[in-house]
Every structure is written in C-alpha cells, then in structure tokens.
Amino acid sequence: MGLQKSGIIGHSDGGIVALRLAASHAVQPEFVIAVGAHWVLPENDPARQIYQKINLEKWRGMFGNQISVYNAENPEPDFEKLFKAATHMWLGCDEDAYPGASVKNIRCPLLVVHGDDDMLVSRQQAFELAEQVKGARLLNLPFAKHTLLEDMPERVFPFLQDFMNHITA
C-alpha cells in the first residue's frame, strides 16, 4: 500500500491477528490497539466452550449482515472457508491460533482494551497481556461488553485518540 507509517487497531479476532503480526515483526506498526483479544486461550477457559458451540448456520443467524458485507466487499468471497479458519484459530492451541509467549516480542506501543463485562475475554486475560509487553497500557472500561466499540464509541474513541496522540508526540 506504500504507507510510511501505520498502526493496527484490531477487535476480537482482528486483535489476535494484530498481536501476531506485531510479535512476528512481519510488519512494523507504529502502534497496536488490541480490543477484546485473547493472546492465549487455555484449555479450561470458558470462552472455549462458547466457541465450540458455534457452527456456520448459527453464525449466519447471528451475523447475517456481516456476512453480506463480507460477500459484497470481496472479489472471491468464500465465507465457509473464512469460518473454518476462524474456528481453527478459536479452538487451536498452537502458533496458528494465539500468539502466546511471542507477544513479548512486540516492540511498538500496545494498548490493550477490555470491557469489564466481556463474556469472551476475562479481565485477568487482558491484564496478563498488558503485563507481557514492555510499556503496554491497559484500558479496562466498566459496564462494557465485548462489542464495546459498537456499543459505546463515544466513550472509547477519546481514549484511543489520546493513546495515538501520545505515540506521535
């Protein structure tokens, strides 16, 4: 794309991808903001049980609008393939799933954003991620769910903007 400077803001699965990219040094982002993202998912994590119950038809029922957007924006859409890859990531325990200990390799500023009422990512999970990366910041928002970017952008975006302003200052 020819960008000289860029940052990555990723929510949920996008946050996992952002963490993996920054940890691998495949890209050199100016910053990463990971919102509602796991960095590991232990076998006994309650989110794993939620992920195991999701199938393609259930996803279509819950997020049909997102699938329509995906199909419209992609020249060769294959939602079934995307869903299988996402499921593999959610339930995986290897380096193809969560970045795990490799997050310690992240060298850019990291903001970990967590909703205190997130049903997928625990407060402990968010705290531990912030502790793994030198200089990382943690934003824990009370009364916020996993969908906090959609539910309360007016509360979240000022914090994201402040974080990015401190990076470029």
Rank of each mutant, 00 (worst) to 15 (best):
G2M: 08
Q4Y: 07
Q4D: 14
K5S: 13
K5C: 01
S6K: 03
I8Y: 02
H11N: 01
D13P: 00
D13L: 06
G14N: 06
G15Q: 03
V17N: 09
L19N: 04
L19I: 05
R20D: 13
A23G: 14
A23E: 09
S24K: 00
S24D: 14
S24N: 06
H25V: 02
H25S: 05
A26V: 09
Q28M: 12
F31M: 08
F31V: 07
V32N: 01
V32M: 03
V32L: 12
I33Y: 01
I33V: 14
A34V: 08
V35G: 01
G36M: 09
H38W: 02
W39R: 09
P42Y: 06
P42G: 08
D45S: 07
D45L: 12
R48F: 02
R48M: 05
R48W: 00
I50E: 00
I50F: 04
I50V: 12
K53R: 11
I54F: 06
N55T: 14
E57D: 15
E57V: 03
K58E: 06
W59Q: 06
R60V: 04
G61F: 10
M62V: 04
F63V: 08
F63N: 14
G64F: 05
Q66C: 11
I67D: 11
S68A: 15
E73F: 07
E73A: 12
N74D: 00
P77M: 02
D78I: 03
E80R: 13
L82A: 15
L82R: 14
F83D: 04
F83Q: 09
F83T: 02
F83Y: 14
A85H: 07
A86T: 10
A86W: 00
W90M: 08
L91E: 13
L91V: 02
G92F: 00
C93H: 13
C93I: 12
D94M: 11
E95K: 15
E95V: 14
A97S: 15
Y98D: 13
Y98T: 10
P99S: 11
G100Y: 12
A101H: 12
V103Y: 02
V103F: 02
V103H: 05
K104W: 03
N105Q: 09
C108M: 07
P109Y: 00
L110C: 08
L110D: 05
L111G: 01
L111V: 13
V113R: 01
H114W: 10
G115A: 09
D116N: 11
D116R: 10
D117G: 00
M119V: 07
L120I: 03
S122M: 11
S122V: 05
R123G: 07
R123S: 13
Q124F: 07
Q124T: 13
Q125C: 14
E128C: 03
E128Y: 05
L129Y: 04
L129C: 01
A130D: 11
Q132G: 03
V133F: 12
K134R: 12
G135E: 09
G135I: 08
A136G: 10
L138R: 12
L139M: 10
A144R: 11
H146I: 00
H146G: 08
L148Q: 01
E150T: 02
D151R: 03
E154R: 11
E154F: 06
E154H: 10
V156H: 05
V156M: 00
F157G: 00
L160Q: 10
D162I: 09
F163Y: 11
F163N: 06
F163G: 13
M164P: 07
H166F: 03
I167W: 12
A169D: 10
